[in-house]
């Protein structure tokens, strides 16, 4: 405990002695992490938006015209018993015709010449939230299509596929940008620690000669890196929050995008804490690389 208190004091002394270098390192790290943050915010909000759009997806299960009423009731039971189904609403042939006439009054005469009602009975199915990914929807539709009495299963296949593709690209881009800028943050913090190490090389040599262990020498610098990373991350979140609120206010003031502003969300507190933790981890990684390199070949 005494050793820990001593190394913590040393780490704090390092930071205080090199105030300018520390401030510059925090600001550059904050800028880098803010770039990652902007990308993450865009990604999170787009993902939210696609989530809402996916919630609205309705799957039409059309029935054979010859299907007896009892079989339709059985099918309805089967659909409702399916764990992946949140709701299934039956639309009879007559109801379908009524809805057609309500939605397209100008075209309702087209059906009159046919004599018999050509519209099939159907179920409007909404899948459970856990089954709304494009892959799940596709798998479910293919399974239901094989059930006897089902003539056709209709959903916005292309649209869902395009959406899935976009999300995948966004995820890849988020990972790529995140990795690149995180590496930049590690380098920035690593270089700051290297400068400190260089400035204090004589002190480090003395510590080695009087019997300080490697951990005793390294830990203050690792703590300093952790502090730089955490502060950089916290500052970046603060800047992002200010920028985010300003952006949302601008959208609401101009009124061009409807109520889009109210749908935009910032990172929840748990994610903010995690991001500060990630910043801390990057700081430790940066200083670890420098400390290791500095210590190589020294006895």
């Amino acid at each position: 405990m005494r050793l820990l208190a001593y190394v913590c004091r040393e780490a704090w002394a390092n930071v205080r002695t090199n105030r300018t270098t520390t401030a510059v390192a925090i600001l550059t790290t904050a800028f880098t992490l803010a770039c990652v943050g902007i990308f993450l915010l865009v990604y999170v909000n787009l993902r939210n938006a696609t989530g809402w759009l996916q919630d609205d997806i309705k799957i039409m299960v059309y029935l054979d015209d010859q299907l007896p009423d009892e079989a339709a009731v059985q099918l309805e039971g089967k659909l409702r018993a399916d764990r992946m189904v949140a709701s299934a609403r039956f639309i009879s042939k007559a109801q379908a015709l009524g809805e057609f006439r309500t939605q397209f009054p100008a075209d309702s005469h087209l059906l009159e010449g046919l004599g018999e009602n050509p519209l099939p009975a159907s179920f409007v199915v909404t899948l459970a939230p856990t089954a709304r990914s494009p892959e799940s929807v596709k798998r479910w539709a293919e399974r239901v299509r094989t059930i006897a009495g089902v003539a056709k299963v209709d959903y916005s296949q292309e649209w869902i596929d395009a959406l899935a593709g976009t999300i995948r690209y966004l995820e890849l881009a988020a990972i790529g940008v995140g990795v690149l800028l995180s590496a930049a943050a590690v380098t920035i913090i690593g270089n700051t620690i290297r400068l400190t190490l260089f400035a204090r090389r004589e002190e480090i040599d003395i510590l080695r000669l009087i019997g300080a262990t490697r951990a005793f020498i390294r830990v203050p610098y690792l703590l300093e890196g952790a502090l730089l990373g955490a502060c950089g991350s916290a500052v970046s979140l603060l800047v992002l929050k200010i920028g985010f609120e300003w952006f949302r206010q601008q959208i609401q003031t101009t009124g061009r995008f409807g109520d889009l502003g109210s749908y935009l969300t910032f990172f929840p507190p748990s994610v903010c804490v995690a991001l500060v933790g990630i910043g801390m981890g990057l700081g430790i990684a940066g200083s670890f690389v420098s400390v290791r390199r500095f210590g190589e070949g020294r006895a």
Partner: peptide, 14 residues
């Protein structure tokens, strides 16, 4: 081993 060297230096003043 490198990890043992500090303990030697604690017994030898320089």
């Amino acid at each position: 081993r490198p990890s043992e060297v500090p303990y030697l230096r604690r017994r030898v003043g320089s």
